[in-house]
Amino acid sequence: MSNSRVVKRVSTRRAAAAVLVAGAAVLAVLVPAGSARQQAVPANTVPPTVTGIPSLGQTLTVTPGTWTGDPAPTFEFQWVRCPPSGGAPDGSDCSTIGGATTTGYVVTSGDVGSRMRVRVTGRNNEGAATVATNATEVVGGQAGPPNTAPPTIVGPAVVGQTLTASPGTWTGTGITFAYAWQRCDAAGGACAAIAGATQSTYRLVAADSGRTIRVNVTATNTTGSNSVQSAQTPVVTTGTGTTGCPAGTGTIDVDRLTPPVRLQFGRQRITPSPVRRDTRTIRVSFQVTACNGRPVEGALVYATPTPYQQFSATEQPTGSDGVAILTMSRLRFFPASNQQQLLVVFARARKAGEDLLGGISTRRLVSFPVNLRG
């Protein structure tokens, strides 16, 4: 081979190498360092979990956990039924449940005695990875509706007063509730059922004095029954003694008053004063007191002029100062006559739930000036 041919080949190779180097330099300029996207197969960093009560008829829910991968993975779910031991951590020895491929699963009778897992697959265009959730507790039967907030009791812990139970918060459908009131020691322990106390309300009796009260609420639906107990009330007191007045000073909640005490009307005012022929609206305020002039909060006050149909009337509660304000609109029969000088008003104060004419209620006629000439 001649020297000229060798030289020519070497030159050609050097030229090709120069082109490659130049091309790399151009790419280095066009694609800055570190900007290349590194795609990756999905990988699980925080395991998926199953939540919910593993009992017949209840709903279990899976969350996929935390994953890496580029592009971000999408997820596939497969519920599996495992032996009571929980099976292998990856769920490989558990039985696949046909059609159970969503994030939620309702426990069936075939699951009772098993433990449940979900095999979660994270997938992108680089590949896929599969991990299994924790195993649930052994699935039980007929657990009843699960409770998410316990029952509560409202009402004053005073002999003669009525306690009311709220059933709390439950999940499920078609739920009915049953109540069983219990009498406990001062610390809320050593509870015993109160005979016949099976309604949502309970009126405290003398035997409750010095004790606390709880209520046991049983919720029932097609999945069975589940019972939850409330917290205890404060220690029950006799409260009012023979007078019907609670101890202390200041404002009294109307629910703490019992016969023989009666509500009383204190001061009353009307605006405008006097009431005139062109008056369209009046505001009448009444203060309700009891037990030597103490303001009563929560009493219901009703008032209406007599003769009737002069101004409208709507019952209103008293505030912490014992005052109820009633706004009345004029009706067709005011004034009752062209010589009317007084607006006579019938007023009544009562405790909610009591007979209108019984309990601690009171009634009174008051009058306010009328000037038809002004």
Rank of each mutant, 00 (worst) to 15 (best):
Thr164His: 03
Ala165Gly: 06
Ser166Phe: 02
Ser166Asn: 11
Pro167Lys: 03
Pro167Ser: 09
Pro167Ala: 06
Pro167Gly: 07
Gly168Leu: 04
Gly168Val: 05
Gly168His: 05
Thr169Gln: 14
Thr169Tyr: 07
Trp170Gly: 00
Gly172Pro: 01
Gly172Phe: 13
Gly174Ala: 08
Gly174Ile: 08
Ile175Asn: 05
Ile175Gln: 12
Thr176Gly: 11
Thr176Tyr: 03
Phe177Tyr: 12
Ala178Asp: 11
Tyr179Thr: 04
Tyr179Cys: 02
Tyr179Gly: 05
Ala180Cys: 06
Trp181Thr: 09
Gln182Glu: 13
Gln182Val: 01
Gln182Thr: 00
Gln182Arg: 14
Arg183Glu: 01
Arg183Gly: 00
Cys184Trp: 00
Cys184His: 01
Cys184Asn: 03
Cys184Asp: 05
Asp185Thr: 06
Asp185Ala: 05
Ala186Phe: 09
Ala186Cys: 04
Ala187Cys: 03
Gly188His: 04
Gly189Leu: 06
Gly189Cys: 13
Ala192Thr: 12
Ala193Asn: 13
Ile194Tyr: 10
Ile194Lys: 04
Ile194Trp: 09
Ile194His: 08
Ala195Thr: 12
Ala195Phe: 10
Ala195Gln: 13
Gly196Pro: 08
Ala197Val: 11
Thr198Asn: 15
Gln199Lys: 15
Gln199Tyr: 13
Gln199Ile: 11
Ser200Tyr: 11
Ser200Arg: 06
Ser200His: 06
Thr201Glu: 04
Thr201Cys: 07
Tyr202Ser: 01
Arg203Ala: 14
Arg203Thr: 15
Leu204Met: 04
Leu204Ile: 02
Leu204Ala: 00
Leu204Thr: 01
Val205Gln: 15
Ala206Met: 08
Ala206Asp: 11
Ala207Lys: 09
Asp208Val: 07
Asp208Met: 11
Gly210Ser: 06
Gly210Gln: 07
Gly210Trp: 02
Arg211Glu: 09
Arg211Trp: 02
Arg211Phe: 04
Arg211Asp: 10
Ile213Gly: 01
Ile213Asn: 02
Ile213Arg: 03
Val215Tyr: 03
Asn216Met: 10
Asn216Tyr: 15
Asn216His: 14
Val217Ser: 07
Val217Lys: 03
Thr218Val: 06
Thr218Pro: 13
Thr218Phe: 08
Thr218Leu: 11
Thr218Ile: 08
Ala219Met: 08
Ala219Lys: 02
Thr220Ser: 08
Thr220Gly: 08
Thr220Gln: 12
Asn221Trp: 15
Thr222Glu: 15
Thr223Glu: 10
Gly224Gln: 07
Gly224Ile: 06
Gly224Asp: 10
Ser225Met: 12
